[in-house]
Design a binder for these strands. Structure first.
Lengths: 337, 337
DNA sequence: CCCCGATAGCTAATCGTTTCGCTGAACTTT
DNA sequence: AAAGTTCAGCGAAACGATTAGCTATCGGGG
């Protein structure tokens, strides 16, 4: 690989001038500029980011650490993020914490070592598991799950509203015995959605039955077994609110395996389902997140911080979910009410 | 951020010693080692990759450039690749060429500038669109689509076998008027799969009708319109072989929109569908690729090259597809045969 | 008692950029 | 014509690590 010195020598100028031409950082006479440009082309010179970054203390890298790459929801985020990062002139370094706090901790340290200019993090741990120094000195945006007491910018969804919307819909259809399959309670996401459900029921003077609220990991398998258990009992709910897209797939499978039909025997509504899981029949009634918008916003905030165009302390952007009506919910049947 | 000098000063040793401790590259007495380790912990020192890389001419970065991040097939590759890259001690830089050769060209140059140690590329261009220098000096593995005449290692699927398997299955069910919706002909992937189809039909003395073989971009929309057109005509095929997973979704939608039923009115078989698109009803009969195995193998080859444990010129690994029988194919009905 | 070999640890050069501070030619201003 | 300005372009010092080559210490053999 040709270096800046080679270019300088070939063009008969100093390295400073080549640098000036490359970065348009000082006036260079047309003649010298032309010589430099020719030399660059001739030698196929490409500047070494390693050297530039060492000097500038920048890396042009933005890290994205998501909670579970096998989840289409996060795959969708990755897709949007790659586009946004490229549009801002950075490159994307991708990490998968696989919902494991330990892995996440290693990733955080790695991001630091790589000298990433910023990171977008979908945190997987509880608020008290983070040390302040893990976020120091590197621009951070938390996506999807805020961490209480953390001083990073945040882009999230109104989870409580999501739970409320979905369960309100089920209540409007006449359901009263409504169950829920939800994620780990230490995550604000799970908690918020469940709170929304409770809000909605409380507004009509109802409370969920204890055995009808189950939580487990945000995984298809966990949801399957939990749902199978819950739906196997005689006083099973007539409708279920599932707090996560992949979990919904597990729940649907459990229902089918129990010989129940959706929506005839049981209605299912969920939150955060990805449009692409779209082939699923019946199509889910769900609250959807504006993933692309959220991701773009997260990167806007991040780049703002990186390029220091921002002074305010912490910005918290909350998006609203939208209820998408599918075919997975039906009015309560008289005979099973 | 603390630097190696700070650590050296605090521990009362030279930077060389600190480096030796960090990299285990020379014998250091237990006493000094202890002092160094303490200082490192105390200052929370993390070495700067930028500096290390400048010196070592390494970046610890592996680039992955896929053809279309919105396609679950590639999302699956990304998932596997992240895990494999991390397991080998590198970090993953992700790019989406979006099936656009121009974008891909920019990506290649960016990868070079970043100084990535290696790259895994799912190429989107025709063989003659690549300049040899675009691959020079950087370890490369082509994934999925070989480029003829290119000297990079390759991991691919036996596309011809995939086409043959799927179409053989349709033929075994009695179908004779078989159509195909396939991708761009300049891609070896599309061509191979179509050739396989032709092989299978030829083996029974058949050839596809000209109007029954349509190609378009590897996108759902393209497939939708092409299929809609093909299936709208009176002598429409009784079975379709679709060369790609997302295209299959488009085809299924076209069939439904035309008021046809699958598999009763038309059988559909495809190649490369991702298991996760699994909710799709009826479940597709398809040839599947061992994505995780292919990706792992690609990274093994790549790391081999990067760490120069390899001398042979070019390695070409070809995986075999597996036929997965779903519910989207039925025996030929007498009345429409 | 001297010399030599082994080796722990240090000094300093190096990687390829950016950028500060300087030089000196060309122009202005009196 | 002398003095002051301007500014294109250069030289060299960073940035933070690795590493070749050197020094000094120690133990052992003759």
């Amino acid at each position: 690989m040709a270096t800046i010195k080679d270019v300088a020598r070939t063009a008969g100028v100093s390295t400073a001038t080549v640098s000036a031409v490359m970065n348009d950082t000082a006036f260079v006479s047309p003649e010298l500029r032309a010589r430099v440009v020719t030399a660059i082309r001739e030698l196929r010179y490409e500047p070494s980011l390693a050297a530039r970054n060492l000097r500038r203390n920048r890396s042009q890298l933005i890290a994205l650490a998501v909670a579970d790459l096998s989840n289409p929801f996060y795959a969708r985020i990755v897709w949007s993020a790659e586009a946004a990062v490229a549009a801002w002139g950075y490159s994307l370094v991708l990490f998968n914490s696989d919902e494991k706090p330990d892995t996440e901790r290693r990733i955080l340290s790695r991001i630091r070592t790589l000298g990433c200019d910023g990171m977008v993090l979908v945190p997987v741990g509880a608020a008290n598991q983070y040390q302040p120094h893990e976020f120091e000195g590197i621009a951070t945006v938390l996506l999807g799950r805020p961490i209480e007491g953390n001083s990073a910018d945040t882009v999230s969804i109104d989870n409580r509203a999501a739970g409320r919307q979905a369960v309100d819909y089920l209540l409007d259809l006449g359901h009263r015995r409504i169950g829920s399959v939800t994620g780990p309670m230490q995550l604000s996401t799970s908690k918020g959605r469940l709170d929304g459900m409770i809000d909605a029921m409380a507004a009509r003077g109802l409370t969920p039955q204890p055995g009808h609220v189950r939580s487990g990991e945000f995984r298809e398998e966990a949801a399957y077994s939990v749902a199978r258990d819950m739906m196997g009992s005689p006083d099973r709910p007539t409708a279920i609110y599932v707090a996560n897209g992949v979990m919904a797939i597990g729940v649907m499978r459990a229902i089918a395996d129990l010989g129940l039909r959706c929506p005839q025997d049981v209605s299912v509504a969920s939150t955060d389902t990805v449009a692409g899981a779209g082939g699923l029949k019946p199509r889910l009634t769900r609250t959807e997140h504006p993933i692309a918008d959220m991701t773009n916003e997260a990167l806007r905030l991040l780049v703002d911080r990186i390029e220091e165009r921002v002074s305010e302390p912490v910005r918290n952007i909350v998006f609203q979910p939208a209820l998408i009506v599918g075919e997975s919910c039906a009015p309560l049947r008289k005979d099973i009410g």
